[in-house]
């Protein structure tokens, strides 16, 4: 059952990858034939197909296995990117965890006191309209002045992005039980905190996990943007920044770092999916 599903997923992934490459190369080939025009027209293509804008897929994949000099050592690109990604992952993981804690605490706080919901919710919404690019240097400068390593500041930026979906969906989930379920707990003379632990939190899980998935990918985005905007020494953001500056001479490198970033996003998404299965679906499997 689950094995068949795994095979199916793997199959879909491979097929879509192949399709993507075919599309990329097909478009590029077409553009090369018509000098970047739609066939038979004078209409220009939206993206030009020269090797600088769209390097060959094979060149990008080759780049991944090529060597790169990092300081004194030379490494295969995959290993180099994996090392950078590991660092970014750590920042994202810290940011995600903090974001989940802060988000859940806010949700519980707003659940407990209605005035908090009225007072906080608008501010929580406003908080997300502050542009990340403006916020990042402020947070990181603050962290540096406190003498913290850059990782702290970057994780805080990731936290800033992740707490939001958790707080909003968490509140909805905590409020989701029927009034008769709440009355049942009251009939047992259950305290507010027991009601939270035995009823509201378990009932909130189906609301929380979609938020966690969003938060996980946002935490990666937040970490990378954080790294880029403050210019750290390491991390995927750093790699992207370096490669972006030399895009005109070596475009394949930027693309390979972008691939690494998406893979990292997929990886954290998968982690949350696994956690969801563990915390919700596992028990229900007995059903079928």
């Amino acid at each position: 059952m689950t094995k068949r599903k795994a095979i199916k997923t793997a199959f879909t992934v491979i097929v879509s990858l192949v399709l993507l490459v075919l599309l990329w190369e097909g478009y590029k080939w077409m553009g090369q034939q018509t000098e970047d025009h739609w066939p038979g027209t004078q209409l220009g293509l939206p993206v030009s197909t020269d090797d600088l804008t769209m390097p060959h897929a094979s060149d990008i994949f080759n780049e991944l296995t090529d060597e790169i000099r990092a300081g004194r050592e030379t490494l295969p690109m995959t290993v180099y990117l994996a090392k950078k990604a590991a660092f970014t992952f750590l920042e994202a993981a810290i940011g995600f965890s903090l974001g989940v804690i802060v988000g859940l605490m806010l949700a519980i706080f707003m659940l407990r006191w209605r005035f908090a919901e009225k007072g906080f919710l608008p501010w929580i919404n406003v908080s997300q309209t502050v542009p990340l690019i403006a916020l990042a240097p402020i947070v990181v400068t603050w962290a540096r002045l406190q003498g913290y390593p850059d990782m702290v500041g970057i994780s805080l930026i990731a936290t800033y992005l992740t707490f939001f979906p958790v707080a909003v969906s968490g509140l909805r989930g905590l409020q989701s039980p029927d009034s008769s379920d709440v009355e049942l707990m009251r009939s047992y003379a259950a305290s507010w905190s027991s009601t939270l632990i035995k009823l509201r939190l378990p009932a909130a899980r189906p609301f929380l996990f979609p938020a966690f998935k969003l938060a996980a990918t946002l935490s990666v985005v937040g970490s990378i943007v954080g790294e880029i905007s403050i210019g750290t020494k390491t991390g995927l953001g750093r790699a992207i920044l370096d490669f972006a500056q030399r895009y005109s001479v070596w475009p394949e490198r930027l693309y390979s770092s972008v691939i690494a970033a998406s893979l990292l996003g997929l990886f954290v998404f998968g982690l949350v999916n696994a956690a969801e299965w563990f915390f919700i679906k596992r028990g229900r499997e007995v059903l079928k």
Partner: peptide, 11 residues
């Protein structure tokens, strides 16, 4: 107490 809908917790 027993309500019309069993109110069992499905988890």
């Amino acid at each position: 107490m027993v309500f019309q809908h069993s109110g069992l917790f499905d988890w």
